[in-house]
Design a protein around this nucleic acid. Structure first.
Length: 921
RNA sequence: GCGGAUGUGGUGAAAUGGUAGACACGCCACUUUGAGGGGGUGGUGGGCGUAAGCCUGUGCGAGUUCGACUCUCGCCAUCCGCACCA
């Protein structure tokens, strides 16, 4: 009997679906394990071979965990709101809901073919009102909360109102936008609108004016992680800075916890570093400099990490967008300053990046007083200072900061060195080392001593205080687009008012066109009746990350219409044990989700403070493009090895008509009309194509569709091959070479069970040789799966099967455990063989085979081994050996062997004529 | 500039500090079947040699060690992230 993967795979996929094999429910008698894939955005192009890499890995792990007795939650769904569907809708007029549904159906078909063990009864779609009800619900909770910096948690906004009415703003240490000072009396005297405006400054979801990334090409604002090098990540349109009123989430309030809690996560160092970088903690001091603009004095606040250098301040710098600019521009400098502001404003983000290091700036006309020296220094305005970080103003120490140095050199400002022996004639001395000089009471200290000493002084004299600054900004939460969650907020007499929770979901209305209105309002401005009792509803929608921030919670209890997740389900499933997905979400989704989870945790809706315990970033699968070489001005193509003798043009050729770099010439002639009468110059009767590694994309003709691979080789082969390709976390090109090897392996497995007449499995007792092979494999597979080293696991299978095949092993006692081991990797063939062995239930519920230590050696013996007359090592052999045997082994008989003693693996290595060593694990 | 990762045959890659290159692709030879991208056996880092064998070899240079692809330091190269963050 032949290995007929087509029939086998169809049969078992149908069986799994019919028997709902992978549906799970909470079961306190079993330990839980939650394995999650980052759910895909269903694009119109369908899946290519790169997408399933992570899904295969997570499926292997899920199946493995099931074999180990865990109750495994392994769900899947779709991140279905997003720009591409809307852009497509604008072009074609098709409703995004229609195209999205179509794309989802296509994705599902493709996913099903790969034999994943998802519990589809838990599927979620972010664009489904029953789902986004809970996205809106969470938003309302954030709207109705404030962040208590003392308690380090979110609390209901009603409690803050209470505090204000009793103690005024001094009663709470609340995270806020702009600092406010008012008494209880002042608060109580405010009208509703005034109170609402004040509260808005404290809400976790709030509306405020901020400098945003405005993308004219998409007609919407974007979050920082949606912009790369001045262009939008989606679509690649230029992005500019603009001040606008937008909904925002106070993510910055959670910066400290987001940073600290990284410690306990089992994530890669590089990913944790990316997040640390993004959060950007820096420790320093906030200091006050008195500043005069000629007739008025202000307290100007700056942030510095180098308080020790305050004696070297020779000027101050303001960001052009800073509020201080207006206050500190003197009458006679107003014209120059205005010109500079206009110049700075005109520049796009991209131009600023391109012109990095170009020094520009103007004098404001004001002076500030150094609070330590009493010296008067000029206040300048320059774009090298960022408005969004710190206070938007700095003290400049040109001797010890390279940016200040460049500025001072350009504008001829003084430079005072503060560290003994440093040379600042050519460049600044930025290192935090050396002995202080020219620095009053700090003289003689090292820099490391001087920093805290300076801050102590500043605090003692009321000039400033210690401060930790974060780079993490609040997330801009509104988009001027159609295809997203509507905000359940309406404006009653100008006051943002939440809709009642029981009125949710607020469904996305129909519109005639998916474009902004004539007056420039977002598309929802076109919706008829978009109001509550005549009060207008918010017209922006939520961004993509809204729906993906808590989806892992919804999977725990997807059909609950009373809560995001019930307490019971949450307490059983808790959080994701293993999360697999791409690095591209490092500073977006993975920050927002952690924030969202922490917020819900603060309010007591979830029981874990982190959503994803262990995270693995699978590498990207790149495309491997093939080329043919057309001789210029002809329709003749020359094979790769001969192309240098001709003048040729390189042309991409569809990789699907190339096999192992050999071109299918007939298929090529049919591929495009232009090539119908193509002639070929061959090497050894074949046309060899050139190749290159590029991104997998339609235009390079290098997209490999998993359906194609399933048709030719089967899903099991595809699964094994993707794992065999190399380490999971590494990026690698898709190369069809080698897939035959994996397919051959499966056929060989099949032939161990079947010859041409039928099943050949016997009940004979296995030989020690066969058992050794099997037990080695069991140990190796367990170890490799737990280490996510799937490529070496596949190799281990090949080695074991080669050994068993050579021994013509067809014994049940060996083959049965073998097929269980294989089942996470190649589930279809495993089910088929499992059934052939006479089992009626699914192999998914078999038990992972146990390692049997047949070869355990009882006791260990110790030998001293000498080398060149000196005793070098103590050799512990796992079993007693005569002395001469040891010596013979050491000196004559090179060998390397593994023993098992007391459950430990002991490896003995003997190098010819030299030395013996022993490693105990 | 800062941070992280990686560097091993023609290719994808293996190697708890212990015989480097397992396993697979490709290639070569032989073999089997009535051909259909079939099955099997053997070979395959480089150099020298008919051969047994010898020399050499994990980006470069030092170091630790009886022993280094592996650990330490310094370079070089590639990839990824961040980037005027005071």
């Amino acid at each position: 009997m032949e290995y007929n993967f087509r029939e086998i795979e169809k049969k078992w996929q149908a069986r799994w679906a019919a028997e709902k094999t992978f549906e799970v429910r909470e079961d306190p008698s079993k330990p839980k394990y939650y394995v999650l894939d980052m759910f895909p955005y269903p694009s119109g192009a369908g899946l290519h071979v790169g997408h399933p890499l992570g899904y295969i890995a997570s499926d292997i792990y899920s199946r493995y965990k099931r074999l180990c007795g865990f109750n495994v939650l392994h769900p899947m769904g779709y991140d279905a709101f997003g720009l591409p569907a809307e852009q497509y809708a604008i072009q074609t007029g098709q409703h995004p809901a229609v195209t999205t549904a179509k794309n989802i159906a296509r994705y599902r078909e493709q996913l099903d073919r790969l034999g994943f063990s998802y519990d589809w009864s838990r599927e979620v779609r972010t664009c489904d009102p029953a789902y986004y009800k809970w996205t809106q619900w969470a938003f309302l909770k954030m709207f109705a909360s404030w962040y208590d910096n003392d308690a380090q948690k979110a609390r209901p906004i009603s409690e803050l109102e209470q505090i204000f009415s009793e103690k005024g703003s001094a009663g709470a240490n609340a995270a806020c936008g702009e600092e406010m000072n008012f008494s209880a009396e002042e608060w109580n005297a405010m009208n509703d609108k005034e109170k609402a405006d004040v509260l808005m400054n404290f809400r976790i979801a709030y509306q405020g004016v901020t400098s945003v990334n405005w993308c004219p090409g998409l007609g919407t604002v974007l979050a920082n992680d949606e912009v790369k090098e001045g262009y939008s990540v989606r679509g690649g349109f230029p992005v500019e800075q603009k001040k606008m009123t937008q909904w925002q989430l106070r993510v910055s309030a959670y910066a400290g916890r987001l940073l600290d809690d990284l410690e306990e996560l089992d994530w890669s160092d590089s990913l944790k570093d990316m997040q640390r970088n993004w959060i950007g903690r820096s420790q320093g001091a906030e200091m006050i400099f008195k500043a005069y603009n000629g007739d008025k004095e202000y307290d100007m606040k700056i942030f510095t990490t180098r308080a020790d250098t305050v004696f070297g301040v020779t000027f101050m710098v303001l960001a052009p967008e800073s509020d201080w600019v207006e206050k500190l521009t003197s009458a006679d400098q107003k014209k120059v300053v205005d010109e500079y502001l206009a110049y700075a404003k005109k520049k796009t983000e991209r131009e600023r990046i391109a012109e990095t290091r170009k020094v520009t700036g103007v004098f404001s006309g004001s002076y500030a007083i150094n609070p330590l020296t009493g010296e008067k220094v000029p206040v300048w305005i320059s774009e090298y200072v960022l408005a969004g970080y710190g206070t938007g103003a700095i003290m400049a120490v040109p001797a010890h900061d390279s940016r200040d140095y460049a500025f001072a050199k350009t504008f001829g400002l003084p430079i005072i060195p503060l560290i003994e022996g440093c040379d600042v004639s050519e460049s600044s001395f930025d290192a935090k080392e050396g002995i202080m000089c020219n620095s009053g009471f700090l003289n003689g200290m090292t820099v490391k001593e001087a920093i805290p000493a300076a801050i102590d002084y500043v605090e003692a004299h009321g000039i400033g205080h210690r401060k930790i600054n974060y780079r993490l900004r609040d997330a801009i939460f509104s988009r001027q687009r159609y295809w997203g969650e509507p905000f359940p907020i309406y404006f009653k007499d100008g006051i943002a008012t939440p809709m009642a929770e029981d009125s949710l979901p607020l469904e996305l209305p129909e519109v005639d066109k998916f474009l902004p209105t004539e007056s420039g309002e977002p598309p929802l401005g076109r919706a008829a009746g978009w109001n509550v009792d005549g009060y207008p509803i918010e017209k922006s929608t939520m961004p993509g990350f809204a729906g993906s921030s808590a989806y892992y919670l919804r999977y725990m209890d997807p059909h609950n219409d009373k809560a995001l997740v019930s307490r019971e389900a949450d307490e059983y499933w808790r959080n994701v044990d293993l999360y697999i997905g791409g690095t591209e979400h490092a500073t977006g989704h993975l920050i927002y989700s952690r924030f969202w989870n922490k917020f819900l945790y603060d309010l007591g809706y979830v029981c874990e403070k982190e959503p994803f315990r262990k995270l693995i970033n699978q590498g990207m699968i790149q495309g491997r493009s093939n080329f043919v070489y057309r001789i210029v001005n002809t329709n003749t193509f020359v094979s790769y090895g001969l192309k240098d003798s001709y003048e040729t043009t390189e042309i991409h050729v569809d990789v699907n008509i190339v096999h192992n770099d050999r071109l299918d010439m007939d298929a090529f002639r049919k591929w495009m009309p232009d090539f119908a009468d193509a002639e070929f110059i061959l090497e050894n009767g074949e046309y060899i194509c050139g190749y290159g590694i590029e991104k997998m994309s339609k235009s390079m003709y290098n997209v490999v569709n998993p359906d194609m691979v399933c048709d030719t080789y089967g899903a099991d082969t595809l699964r094994l091959y993707e794992m065999f390709l190399g380490p999971l976390e590494q990026s690698k090109p898709w190369d069809t070479k080698g897939i035959d090897g994996v397919h051959r392996f499966l056929k060989r497995v099949w032939r161990m069970f079947y010859d041409k007449d039928g099943l050949i499995v016997t009940d004979e007792a296995p030989s020690p040789q066969e058992l050794k092979t099997l037990h080695k494999l069991i140990a190796k597979i367990k170890e490799d799966i737990e280490a996510f080293s799937f490529n070496t696991a596949v190799s281990a299978f090949m080695i074991a099967v080669n050994e068993l095949y050579e021994q013509k092993c067809n014994k049940r006692a060996v083959l049965e455990p073998l097929v269980i081991l294989l089942s996470p990797f190649a589930p279809h063939i495993s089910e088929e063989l499992w059934a052939a062995l006479g089992h009626s239930g699914s192999i998914s519920f078999a038990a992972f085979p146990e390692y049997v230590a047949e070869y355990t050696v009882e006791s260990a013996c110790t030998y001293a081994v000498s080398f060149n007359g000196k005793t070098r090592f103590t050799l512990e052999l796992p079993k007693a050996m005569p002395k001469d045997e040891v010596e013979r082994n050491v000196l004559e008989n090179p060998l390397s062997a593994k023993y098992i003693a007391d459950g430990k693996v002991v490896k003995v290595i003997v190098v010819p004529g030299k030395i013996v060593n022993i490693v105990v694990k």
